[in-house]
Computed example of a mutant assay.
Amino acid sequence: MSDFYLLSKPNCGLCQQALLQVHQQPLEQPVTLAMVDISDDPALLEEYANLVPVLIRAKDDAELRWPFQQLMEFLSQ
């Protein structure tokens, strides 16, 4: 099982699309996905305000930015 974080913010339509894309992937191994509201953290808000949604892989802090072109590969690594 792998851990991932989806950086999002309130009223973000792209974030909802990103979440749906992650849930629709036909994965062989389950993943744990935590939602992170960047508006709760000034440092995250400053860094990612115009970039969300961003998917982060916890084991190596790799980032996949929207649009998620290689989502399946990113989730499987």
Rank of each mutant, 00 (worst) to 15 (best):
Met1Pro: 01
Ser2Trp: 00
Ser2Val: 00
Ser2Thr: 04
Phe4Tyr: 15
Phe4Cys: 02
Tyr5Ile: 00
Leu6Asp: 03
Leu7Arg: 00
Leu7Thr: 02
Lys9Asn: 04
Lys9Cys: 12
Lys9Val: 12
Gly13Lys: 08
Leu14Trp: 10
Gln17Val: 15
Gln17Thr: 14
Ala18Val: 03
Ala18Leu: 07
Leu19Met: 09
Gln21Ala: 15
Val22Cys: 05
His23Gln: 12
His23Val: 06
His23Ala: 13
Gln24Thr: 04
Gln25Thr: 04
Pro26Glu: 10
Leu27Asp: 08
Glu28Thr: 07
Val31Arg: 04
Ala34Met: 10
Met35Gly: 00
Val36Asn: 06
Asp37Trp: 07
Ile38Gly: 05
Ser39Phe: 08
Ser39Gly: 07
Asp40Gln: 15
Asp41Pro: 01
Asp41Met: 04
Pro42Arg: 08
Pro42Thr: 13
Ala43Ser: 09
Ala43Trp: 14
Ala43Val: 10
Leu44Glu: 15
Leu44Gly: 09
Leu44Arg: 14
Glu46Met: 13
Tyr48Ile: 00
Asn50Val: 11
Asn50Phe: 13
Pro53Gly: 06
Leu55Ser: 06
Ile56Met: 14
Ile56Tyr: 08
Ala58Tyr: 08
Lys59Pro: 00
Asp60Ala: 02
Asp60Phe: 06
Asp60Gly: 03
Asp60Gln: 08
Asp61Ile: 01
Asp61Thr: 06
Ala62Ser: 14
Glu63Ile: 07
Leu64Pro: 01
Leu64Ser: 09
Trp66Arg: 08
Trp66Pro: 01
Phe68Tyr: 04
Gln69Trp: 11
Gln70Trp: 12
Gln70Met: 12
Gln70Lys: 12
Leu71Cys: 06
Leu71Ser: 03
Met72Ile: 05
Leu75Ile: 11
Ser76Lys: 04
